[in-house]
Design a protein around this nucleic acid. Structure first.
Lengths: 78, 78
DNA sequence: TGTAATTTGTACGTATGTATC
DNA sequence: TGATACATACGTACAAATTAC
């Protein structure tokens, strides 16, 4: 699933995989995406890398994070 | 200079200090800001924290980074 | 021409704090 | 109380590109 040795950074690979899960509808609007710990386990990566992937999705406007709560699909203020 | 135990994150304290050095003219447009290693030594912080501080300045549009070269005051396209 | 140093980029691991549930 | 989840911060290591010598 993840190629740690490829030219594409792992955090971007993970972000793209999560983005695909959002596009497919598996992760629906205003529903939480997997937690950092879950992402770490699912993809076998470090926590810092998982955080970077989520940060990238946030920059893309695909998700929003509520501190100490979780990260959700879509945009805040519903 | 840096208060590691205060409510303000270290990376933001460092970013603000660097921003002040830019405002004062000590760091002039299109001149490099201190390297990550230098920032680490100057402020006694970890490199990851220094990188976050620089990333914050980048988000604020105060600096731009040229990979493998350095980070410079102002905006690209000179 | 070749080598070493510099600098940013990526990735991992660990620890602690704070807020929520 | 305890578990969960994000925020911050430390340290370490290696890669890639540029620069200096």
């Amino acid at each position: 699933m993840i190629d740690p040795d490829g030219p594409v950074p792992v955090y971007r690979q993970v972000a793209d995989l999560l983005a695909a899960r959002i596009s497919s509808g598996e992760l629906a609007p205003h529903r939480p995406i997997p937690s950092e710990s879950t992402i770490v386990q699912e993809y076998g990566i470090a926590r810092g890398t998982a955080r970077r992937a989520v940060a990238l999705l946030r920059e893309r406007g695909l998700v929003y994070t509520v501190p100490q709560r979780g990260t959700y699909v879509g945009q805040p203020e519903s």
